[in-house]
Amino acid sequence: MGDTTMKAAVPAGPGNSQTEIRHGAHVDTIENVDIVFRAQRKLSFTYGAWFFGVTLAIPASSVWWKGWYATPIWGGFTLNYLFVSLFYYVFLWTMAWTYSKQADKLDEQLMHMADADEASAAMTGKEG
């Protein structure tokens, strides 16, 4: 952290309510961060809902669905045993991979928004 310059400012001019944070040549504004944060929150909580839904559906099925916990389907494997001992990990790997990729895209979106803002500011400066 020590090798970067961090600065928060609330410019007072009318029509400019931006708060920004600057590290070297890179700037994040609260507006841009909030837009990406909302998308990130939607992504994380959607995946979270799927994760907890599936994870808690396993004990729920263990309590109430006899075909899940008491019917062998391959040797001694029941659906319950097969899922908990093997397929649950495939589910976790798939979720973690797809989530990470989508979250990376949101990071890139923030970067592009910041780049566009900087380009726009530079253009305004030239025109001024």
Binding site: I21, V33, L110, M111, A114
Partner: peptide
């Protein structure tokens, strides 16, 4: 807002990448 940008912003990482 500054705290929020530290948690959810990426300017710092982009600077470190540079």
């Amino acid at each position: 807002d500054e705290i929020w940008m530290r948690i959810h912003g990426t300017a710092h990482e982009r600077h470190e990448r540079d």
